Amino acid sequence: MTSFGYTLMTEQRGPRDLVADAVAAERAGFDFEVMSDHYLPWLDEMGHAPYAWSVLGAVANATDRVGLMTYVTCPTTRYHPAVVAQKAATVALLAEGRFTLGLGSGENLNEHVVGRGWPSADVRQEMLDEAVAIIASLLAGGYVTVDGSHYRVDSAKLWDRPDTGVPIAVAVSGEQSVKRYAPVADAMVGVEPDPELVQGWDDAGGTELPKIGQQPVSWGPDRAAAVDRAHALFRWFAGGWKVNAELPGTAGFAAATRFVRPDDVAGAIPCGPDVAAHVEAVRPFVDAGYTHVALVQVGGETQPEFIEFARAQLLPALREEYGQSKGPAIRVRPATHH
Rank of each mutant, 00 (worst) to 15 (best):
P183A: 10
P193D: 14
V184T: 13
T207Y: 15
P162D: 11
Q214V: 15
P167N: 10
W201R: 00
E208P: 01
W219D: 03
A185L: 14
R180V: 08
W219N: 02
I168Y: 08
A255W: 15
D228Y: 02
V172Q: 02
A230R: 00
E196R: 08
R180D: 10
D194N: 11
K157A: 12
G165Q: 00
N244P: 09
A171W: 03
L209I: 07
A204D: 05
L247V: 13
D202L: 06
L197C: 07
R223V: 11
D194H: 05
A238K: 09
W236F: 14
A224C: 05
A204N: 09
G239D: 14
L247Y: 14
I168Q: 06
V198Q: 11
A238W: 12
I168M: 08
G239Q: 13
T164A: 10
E192F: 11
R229C: 09
L233R: 07
P248E: 06
Y181N: 05
F253D: 02
Q199G: 13
R152C: 00
E246V: 09
R223Q: 06
G252S: 13
S155V: 10
R229N: 10
E196V: 13
S218M: 02
G213H: 04
M188L: 11
K211H: 09
V170D: 05
G200P: 00
V243G: 15
L233F: 12
R229E: 15
A245D: 08
R235S: 09
V191C: 13
F237N: 04
Q214I: 02
D186L: 03
G190P: 06
V170I: 03
R235N: 04
V184P: 11
V227S: 04
L209P: 01
K211L: 01
I212A: 03
S155M: 14
